[in-house]
Design a protein around this nucleic acid. Structure first.
Lengths: 239, 239
DNA sequence: CAGCAAATTTGATGCTTGTTAAAATTTAAA
DNA sequence: TTTAAATTTTAACAAGCATCAAATTTGCTG
């Protein structure tokens, strides 16, 4: 019961814990969520399974630790981006998230799936809720900035708008994590979703600006065909 | 290897299969997704586990069979609703789905979770994709009708709009299924999401109409507080 | 009606996963 | 150096899905 003290034993524990988390990250990135079982992790980290329980806890705790790492990284990236125009502020979460995810797509894909896995199965997780509350706060801040800059009319409740945007973002995330489309498509989709939601309550000039941005983001062949659905069906005829 | 013929044996098989599906439905409604394990199901249906494999298949097939039942029911309800104004048409999926779900909330909650469970875990399911493709088609039809009636301007690609709406609907569904809010809140949220998305591309009169509908749906106390987040935190202080 | 062949149900079993209790070992202090 | 505390390991359990050979039921036929 140490891990916070500074004795030799505690230092070794922290080292093994870090090793475990690193191996878990690699395992997750390599084989996806299914590949992360405790026996394999123990084998890779040169410990036995109960040691994992001692150093980290049960599987939920392991996944939570990995997710917390991503969240921390994301927080540190978004923090210094507070001096920007309202639209950039509103889009910060989307831009920074996709930017971070793109750096190690395999791992972040699996990490996201892991966190999503925590939230299902009837049990509710305060940690997961806190993550999404944080995202919601960020989006709310962006919307408030747009409202303050007289870009939004305020005819739609800000909370409703921000909830809508966050739900949408999470769903786009899922689609990417499940392999329905790549990270570029994910980013494009999430941004378009955001712009469309804002456009619903936008002042005319702002609305035109948003529509322009959407057009900019839209590939030429996406006008008639749904990208999500078309991308979903191209499976099995690649090799 | 019958089940399609009309001998006595085949009829008994169908009977047992129906019994199994009925018990599975009850089990799912009672104890949620976790309660649906093959041993318990076999016990309730007065058969043994391998019989389930013979009559239905593995667990995926069982869940798929349950989901297919819900989809069939939903299809039959939406089919005769084709003679309506464009907005009603666009909202048909939301209204009919929530209407059906409300009739047996416990079961449909669990059934939805079961279908969602199929779609995760790396494996892709064509059956699940077909369900959501169908929903997407319906929403697309509604949007096309709105466009044809000159209610939408067409400045946002219809496919993009319909994808957005469907993603949102699925996410609202998840929130309800996970118990974050009740069926009424779910219906309200899904409709608001739809209206907001349409408003982004709506002609001015239509936009006002949509905003009015949103205001109608919005409870008085939802203006400042996010319902999803506030509802998420009321746990543990009820008893 | 009796017997036979095919199909179906069953009991037993394997395998994987998460999880835990107690023994063995290592570590820090007296 | 001895000793007590903490940590790792050995070993095993429980629960889930999945499957196989044997037993049983069913439907047809002489």
């Amino acid at each position: 019961m140490s891990l916070a003290t500074d004795t030799l034993r505690a230092r070794n524990m922290r080292k093994r814990r870090a090793r475990l988390l690193a191996e878990a990250r690699g395992l997750l990135a390599r084989g996806g969520f299914e590949a992360l079982n405790l026996r394999e992790l123990a084998r890779l980290a040169d410990v036995t399974v109960p040691t994992i329980y001692n150093l980290i806890g049960k599987k939920e705790d392991l996944l939570l630790a990995l997710g917390a790492g991503v969240l921390t990284e994301l927080e540190s990236r978004i923090a210094p981006a507070h001096e920007a125009d309202p639209l950039t502020l509103a889009a910060a979460v989307v831009v920074e998230s996709t930017g971070l995810f793109a750096e190690d797509e395999d791992f972040h894909r699996a990490a996201f799936l892991a966190v999503e896995w925590l939230d299902q199965g009837g049990q509710h997780h305060d940690e997961v809720a806190r993550i999404y509350d944080w995202v919601g706060e960020l989006i709310s801040t962006g919307i408030a900035a747009c409202r303050a800059a007289r870009l939004l009319r305020g005819r739609v409740a800000a909370a409703m708008l921000s909830d809508l945007i966050m739900r949408n973002f999470r769903m786009s995330c899922r689609g990417w994590a499940f392999g329905h489309y790549g990270i570029d498509e994910f980013r494009r989709m999430a941004l378009c979703d955001l712009y469309i939601a804002l456009a619903a309550d936008a002042v005319e000039t702002f609305q035109l600006q948003l529509l322009h941005k959407i057009t900019e983001l839209t590939p030429d062949d996406t006008v008639a065909t749904s990208p999500a659905r078309s991308a979903r069906n191209n499976r099995g005829d690649s090799t």
